[in-house]
Design a protein around this nucleic acid. Structure first.
Lengths: 239, 239
DNA sequence: AAGTGGTCTAGACCACGTC
DNA sequence: ACGTGGTCTAGACCACTTT
């Protein structure tokens, strides 16, 4: 481990970012190979002429990102399975559509209380208690983009039954009135049946991407939503 | 902001984790509402009887997770769009299958050099240069689970043409010999045609989940892979 | 101009897991 | 037992951006 001087001129990246970059470069150049143990924090700090905390910050960040694996006493090693986690962006739909340059549109199709055993089971509420059903269509440049079918537990979202959902999506209302604590997201694919297919502008039997999300708040299950996307839609992410 | 004493008994979570938990609880209980500015680090440190660095660590972590938004001089606010990023796990398939309790199997269907304009375009190589094509089937309890079609740039993965791929997946070989630096992942859905459908054990036209991944290493594009999943397969993640 | 978060240092103690 | 990372403190300076 030869010495290494950091750039301390004004406007240069923070030292810990520079150290992070150096380490990442060594990994990616194959200088530190997967499974290898790298020098310890103390030695790196001496080599970089900085404090151990600064090195620690850099290495912790790389470990969080999946590039390194760290163990007390065992030292720091290059991960054998680097970057196995990809951040899946779940942006506000409206923003995503606008960002792509298209005009966003929203159409409320249906809303009201009704009983549904399947939804009650998903939301862990008694099967005989009515739930709020909201069905809406999100449009990009007037073309159907996403069909939203949502069941809401009124107990976790008091006021939802009186809310005006005709202009803005339910998600925005929930965001402000019933912040979520935890969510489980499932991404799958289905041959969609005729009624739904028509709504989203697809032919019956078309393969559509389905995102299914169940969310909980501080007082319990909030909502269960099924998002059916237009044909050809793909989720994209990078690492 | 009333005082708050941290638990310092042995075996209790680290102070910054306790502070993180306290803050998260206040957000989720609605005590700090989306958009609200929360007390500054100094005040919180006094209230918790700890150093500002400790508070900073906790709040930074919550900001990284998307619960808070922080600005110099502007203070720290509860995010109006909480938890918009979900970590999408991209585990080693073999591990994932084993973990689910099933027996993992692998069958190499085809491997060799060949020209393909589409793949060359994807990998950004000259269209007349041959690429390595690998097609393999991953099995769970002897049932088809994932059909892998992969194009590899031999220049970025020297030795791949001579590697023995009959027993272990290409991904493991690449992992050790050509670690990836960057990747773009696309998740979509397709009505799969008969030949592919047969291989994965589906009927023609079935809706299957497709994961498409392009990866780069230190010297350039490494591989482009298309993963076709068995009917009913869903990707799952939680926040 | 001033308040806020972002970071660095120097030193210390501790938890963990390997040796 | 002991080396390693994990964390905390106290103090300081700086960068940003709002007032």
């Amino acid at each position: 481990m030869e010495g290494f001087t950091l750039d301390t001129t004004r406007g240069s990246p923070a030292p810990w970012l520079q150290i992070r970059a150096i380490a990442l470069r060594r990994i990616q150049a194959g200088l530190w190979r997967p499974g290898d143990q790298i020098p310890n924090e103390q030695d790196l700090a001496i080599a970089c002429r900085c404090n151990r905390s600064t090195v620690s910050r850099a290495l912790r960040d790389l470990a969080d990102a999946g590039f390194l694996e760290r163990r007390r006493r065992g030292g720091t090693r290059v991960a054998t399975n680097p970057a196995r986690k990809a951040p899946l962006d779940v942006p506000i739909l409206e923003d995503a559509i606008r960002k792509s340059g298209a005009r966003y549109g929203y159409r409320l199709l249906k809303s009201g209380l009704r009983r549904c055993e399947q939804a009650a089971a998903a939301l862990d509420t008694p099967p005989d208690r009515p739930l709020m059903l909201v069905r809406a269509l999100h449009l990009a440049d007037d073309a159907p983009h996403q069909l939203e079918t949502r069941w809401i537990n009124p107990e976790s979202a008091p006021g939802i039954t009186e809310a005006d959902l005709s202009a803005r999506g339910v998600d925005l209302w929930l965001l402000q009135h019933a912040p979520l604590t935890r969510a489980v997201i499932r991404i799958g694919s289905e041959n969609v049946a005729a009624p739904e297919a028509n709504m989203i502008g697809a032919e019956a039997g078309a393969a559509l991407l389905i995102v299914d999300r169940k969310s909980w708040g501080s007082v319990g299950p909030i909502s269960w939503v099924r998002l059916l996307h237009r044909p050809g839609f793909v989720l994209e992410t990078a690492i």
